[in-house]
Computed example of a mutant assay.
Amino acid sequence: MSETVTITALDGGETFSAYAARPAGTPRGAIIVIQEIFGVNAGIRRKCDKLAEEGYLALAPDLFWRLEPGIELDPDVEPEFQRALDLMGKFNQDQGIRDIEATIHHIRREEGVAKVGCVGYCLGGRLSFMAAARTDVNATVGYYGVGIDGLLGEKHAIAHPLMLHIPTKDGFVDEATQKAMHEGLDGHPKVTLHDYEGLDHGFATEFGKRRSEDAAQLADRRTSEFFALHIG
């Protein structure tokens, strides 16, 4: 079952929406799905639906709500892709993490689910790393996160398991950045990195031309096993 839920921001004065997909029975845990730069579109909603099929309560908060609520863009349509890049430039990532934290609080307090993970893609992959360092989320996965090399100074704050999926031919994450990520994180006891040789950004998207089927299935299987171990 899917629905739209309302989440109260940390300041208590405003609210924003989230797409929620519910499992058939009692949730085994909850997973926050963190959007790409394209908003809570059909692909992100499908990620939630698949997690609900695995028994999780899955929520995808609308992190662009301060810019424009309800944005849904298609990365395969060039004007929409360019609009997404513009939105990313305007987006306050620190505030986005506070909205993710508000979503964690909502799940624990309003939904009564104690163990919460998050998984993010693209921009969401970067925000996943930030959430792992700045919130008490129980386990985190990031797909093709951008600019994580600039966040390595926060790695000491990562207290719960984090998994990162890294395509080696990512057009937004060059080899030097990938090398810095490995050098900074390979020795971290809570962090696991997986490389996907020859693949580009967005390889695990649910819809569209960016998807690489075999690699997407491999990464998603690793993610599923990771959450089963750390969330339930």
Results as ranks from 00 to 15, higher is better:
205 T>Q: 03
64 F>I: 10
122 C>D: 04
85 L>P: 01
77 V>Q: 05
178 Q>D: 01
88 M>R: 14
182 H>Y: 02
4 T>A: 08
9 A>Y: 08
135 T>S: 13
186 D>Q: 04
162 L>C: 07
189 P>H: 00
45 R>L: 05
160 H>Y: 07
211 R>C: 00
206 E>M: 06
60 A>N: 11
1 M>A: 15
40 V>A: 13
61 P>G: 12
210 R>D: 00
121 Y>M: 06
79 P>K: 14
116 V>A: 13
199 L>V: 06
140 T>N: 11
25 G>Q: 14
45 R>W: 05
99 D>C: 08
61 P>H: 12
55 G>S: 06
218 L>P: 00
139 A>G: 15
130 M>W: 06
210 R>G: 00
59 L>F: 04
129 F>W: 06
50 K>A: 12
20 A>R: 14
35 Q>Y: 11
109 R>L: 03
145 G>C: 04
141 V>C: 12
167 P>Y: 02
80 E>N: 10
70 G>F: 10
108 R>M: 11
31 I>D: 04
174 D>G: 08
141 V>H: 07
56 Y>R: 09
134 R>K: 15
105 H>P: 00
29 G>C: 12
216 A>N: 02
171 G>Y: 00
4 T>D: 10
122 C>E: 02
153 G>I: 08
191 V>Y: 00
224 S>L: 15
232 G>F: 14
154 E>C: 11
227 F>E: 07
